[in-house]
Amino acid sequence: MQDIKKESITIAKIKRFFPESILEVNLADNDDCIIIKKEANVEVLSFLKTDADLLFDGLMDVTCVDYLKHPIKRKERFEVVYQLYSYSKRHKIRIKCPVSVKDTTIKSVSHLWKSANWGERETYDMYGITFVGHENLKRLLTHHEFIGHPLRKDYPTKKRQELSANDSLFDQMDVLLKKKGLK
């Protein structure tokens, strides 16, 4: 019979080691969420991945939320969301970083988790968030002649853009060939 929700070890550790980076803590059933400053995202996330008690070895998703037309007003328009899961400890956490519309940059975490590579590309494609330090930040789902970012709330839903010719994709092939020593 416990009315007050106990803080998980993850939240306790982040509070202990990064007290200045925390903006807000939201507790929910098995769905804890911490909002941190975007400048501290790489430090906090690499800590979460490597700490012996936490071991968040899986990045389930990188995405973004556009709060332009959201009923609850936010200080910043975008929030980049990281969904983390630990396969060994079987716990999860959601990390959010507010990003302003004037400066849509945030540091990349693609060196920490391989899944962040495509997740960040998709987020860039759909929301126009620039991930600084990403090795190949180009559009993932829409075509290379596409202008704008379709999941932004100010993008007209039915604005369609035709493609004249497909991307050769050889820029990515060259990287692979060089990695294997074939070029």
Partner: peptide, 9 residues
């Protein structure tokens, strides 16, 4: 479904 990315193909 045919998307605009597939249209040239």
């Amino acid at each position: 479904t045919i998307t605009y990315k597939q249209a040239p193909i």
